[in-house]
């Protein structure tokens, strides 16, 4: 196959764009609602964890909402999404129902995995969400396999494969990069760089801290994106999906983002200062950015409060369901091992 011309982000990492393209009012409102849903959901999940209703590990997405919401706005029906264990936001962005996700967190029969997967392992074939994977980096090869299936079938679907700055140091990521470019697979590698792999900052773990350059030795183009600005994410996602659908192979988007909460609920987060968190929150919060633009454009505070109220109601209903839905029947112990 002839090597297509690389037009996207050739100067990997150096493309510091100005302001991203404006959103329409409808887009702003949609982005706000979808991000708010994730944030309120995660706050509620944190609360339920604190009450002992959610067990095990629980990794919250608060702070990173613009990444999945902006990416999802550029996708079409049929595109696959796969990610690691910090997955609640991805599922909600894919259109999976809050109550099914929350009930999985509480280990109840109405959960997406009927209570057998938990926070890190949920799937929805219907919404093309392929998990929810608990082994750091494993989803990168799997997502490459989803892209392989698209290529095999000759459809124009794109696999959106998310992983973090920590997973970016796993060996299989580079094995996957090699095959994806070799076979020109339609996969967008979205590296969510939230600056910390659990308690280890990027500077302490990564020889190459510009993750958009991680594909250089495989000739995979990459781009750094302001992952706190949903418009910038959407614009980059538009370019990336066009690149993949054009038969050009994989592309890397490094989303520069930040998680406000600890790595998991039991993380005291002593590896960073409270001031650092507060500064990002104050200066770059993805939801506040949209709120402020909407207010400036004349949308009333009241209208925005109504959105928040609607979202809170969905989340409260989900939490209520998740606490009252029964646990799986004992007979479920031996189901779904083979089909």
């Amino acid at each position: 196959m002839a090597t297509p011309k690389k037009t996207v982000a050739k100067e990997s990492g150096q493309e510091k764009a100005g302001s991203p393209p404006e959103f329409s009012k409808e887009q702003e409102l949609k982005a706000l609602r979808d991000m708010l849903l994730i944030r309120r959901f995660e706050e509620k999940a944190g609360q339920l964890y604190g009450m002992g209703a959610i067990g095990g590990f629980c990794h919250l997405y608060i702070g990173q909402e613009a990444v999945v919401v902006g990416m999802q706005m550029a996708l079409k029906q049929g595109d696959e999404v796969i990610t690691g264990y910090r997955d609640h936001g991805h599922m909600l962005a894919c259109g999976m129902e809050s109550r099914g996700v929350m009930a999985e967190l509480t280990g109840r029969r109405g959960g997406y995995s009927r209570g057998k997967g938990g926070s890190m392992h949920m799937f929805s074939k219907e919404k093309h969400f392929y998990g929810g994977h608990g082994i750091v980096g494993a989803q990168v090869s799997l997502g490459t396999g989803l892209a392989f299936a698209n290529r095999y079938r000759g459809n124009d679907n794109v696999s959106v494969t998310y992983f973090g700055d920590g997973a970016a140091n796993q060996g299989q990521v580079y094995e996957s990069f090699n095959m994806a470019e070799l076979w020109k697979l339609p996969v967008i590698y979205v590296i969510e760089n939230n600056r910390y792999a659990m308690g280890t900052s990027v500077s302490r773990a990564s020889a190459q801290q510009d993750f958009s350059k991680r594909g250089v030795s495989f000739n995979i183009p990459g781009k750094q994106v302001d992952g706190m600005d949903v418009r910038a994410v959407k614009a980059a996602a538009d370019e990336a999906t066009a690149w993949c659908r054009g038969g050009n192979g994989p592309i890397i988007l490094e989303m520069q983002t930040y998680r406000y909460r600890g790595h998991s609920m039991s993380d005291p987060a002593k590896y960073r200062t409270r001031e650092e968190v507060e500064k990002v929150r104050h200066d770059q919060d993805p939801i506040e950015q949209v709120r402020n633009r909407l207010l400036a454009s004349g949308v009333s505070e009241q209208d925005l409060k109504a959105i928040d109220a609607e979202v809170r109601e969905i989340v409260n209903e989900a939490a209520d369901f998740a606490q009252h839905d029964p646990e799986p029947d004992a007979s479920e112990l031996y189901t779904d091992i083979y089909r």
Partner: peptide, 19 residues
Amino acid sequence: PITEHGFAGVGVGAAMAGL
């Protein structure tokens, strides 16, 4: 390529997609 971990994962991903 000589990349067992990677191609096993690619195979599993393709199987999850129905191949």
